[in-house]
Write a protein that binds this DNA or RNA. Structure first.
Lengths: 154, 154
DNA sequence: TATTGTTATACTCTATAACTATA
DNA sequence: TATAGTTATAGAGTATAACAATA
C-alpha cells in the first residue's frame, strides 16, 4: 500500500501539451460545477442555455445553438427540460411562424439568479489557488484561443 | 441573410466564467486534434495512453488509469484498441500474476513518434495567437487548477 | 480482505440525416 | 430554395457495480 516513491514523476510529454492540461483542468471544474448545481439537477449546458435565455430577450433556438456552439437538434432536449420544469416558455413569433422565442418564466429568472450565486461561489472555490489577476489572465488566454472560431461568440 | 448587426454582443455572464471559457477552448483544440490524428484514427485518450506506455516502462493498467484520471474499466477498451492494432502488448508479470505490464511494440513506438510530431504541429497551429511565453503561462495556470487533484498527476 | 483486470450496463453529450412547416 | 424546429439514430466517453483470479 506504500506510495510508489520510486518513479520521480517523469514530466511526461502530456504535461507540456495545452490540450491535455485544458482537458484535465476542465474535468475538475466540471465535476465541481455538477456537484454545486446538483440540488437543481442542472447540467453545465442547461445552465448556459438558461443564462442566455435570461439575458437575451426573444432569443430563438437557432440563435442559442449558434451562441453555444452546438447543433440545433441538440438544443431541443435542453429547452424541453427547461420548459418541462417551468423555467422557460416557447413563445410563437407572429412575424415568422417558423420561429419560437425562448422566454424565461418568473420561476426561471429566480432559479437563474440563485444558480448564478452558486456558480460564482463554485468558481471561487475551485480557483482558490489563482489570484484575481491570474483568473483574468487565464480567461484572456482562453478567449484568444476561442477567437479563431468565427462569430458564434456568446 | 444579413448578419444581425443590432445586438452589440452583450458580454454574457458566461464569458466571465473560467469553466465556460475552458470548455469552449477545449472543444476547439479537441476538434483540431482529432482532425490532425484522423489518418491514424487515434482519439485523444488513446494518444495519451500510448504516450505514457511509450514513456513509462512496465506500466500496468491500474497505474495508467490513475495517471489518466479515468476508471480501470474504461481503460480496457483503450488497451484493446492499441493491442488489436499491434501497437501495445499485455505482458504477464511473474512477480504478481494479477498484473499485466503494458509494453509498446516497435510499430507502437514508431506510431508514437510520428503522432507526437503531428500533435506538436497541431498545437502550434491552433495556438498561433499565443506567443511562447503566453503558452507557458497558460499551462502554468491550468496546472495550478490541477494541483487540487491529489497524486494522479501524470 | 484487498487488488487487477474484466464484463455488463447505463447515462451524458454530441453529431448527422431526414422530416415538417413555414418562408 | 432555404430556414426553424424536430425526430431518430448512432457514436464517443465515462461511471458504477459485480465478478474471477490472485495476493
Amino acid at each position: 500500500m506504500k506510495q510508489k516513491s520510486k518513479t520521480p514523476m517523469p514530466p511526461s510529454l502530456l504535461e507540456s501539451l495545452v490540450g491535455y492540461n485544458l482537458k484535465r483542468a476542465y474535468v475538475i471544474i466540471e465535476n465541481d460545477f455538477r456537484a454545486t448545481l446538483s440540488e437543481f439537477a442542472m447540467s453545465p449546458r442547461v445552465f448556459s442555455a438558461l443564462t442566455l435565455i435570461a439575458q437575451v430577450p426573444n432569443l430563438t433556438q437557432s440563435d442559442l445553438s449558434r451562441r453555444l456552439g452546438i447543433e440545433r437538434s441538440g438544443l431541443v432536449a435542453i429547452v424541453d427540460e427547461l420548459e418541462g420544469n417551468g423555467y422557460v416558455r416557447r413563445v410563437p413569433v407572429p412575424r415568422d411562424r417558423r420561429v419560437q422565442a425562448l422566454c424565461p418564466t418568473p420561476d426561471g429568472l429566480t432559479l437563474y439568479r440563485e444558480a448564478v450565486r452558486l456558480v460564482r461561489a463554485h468558481e471561487d472555490r475551485v480557483l482558490t489557488m489563482l489570484g484575481t489577476e491570474e483568473r483574468a489572465q487565464l480567461i484572456g488566454l482562453l478567449q484568444k484561443i476561442r477567437q479563431c472560431e468565427q462569430g458564434d461568440t456568446a
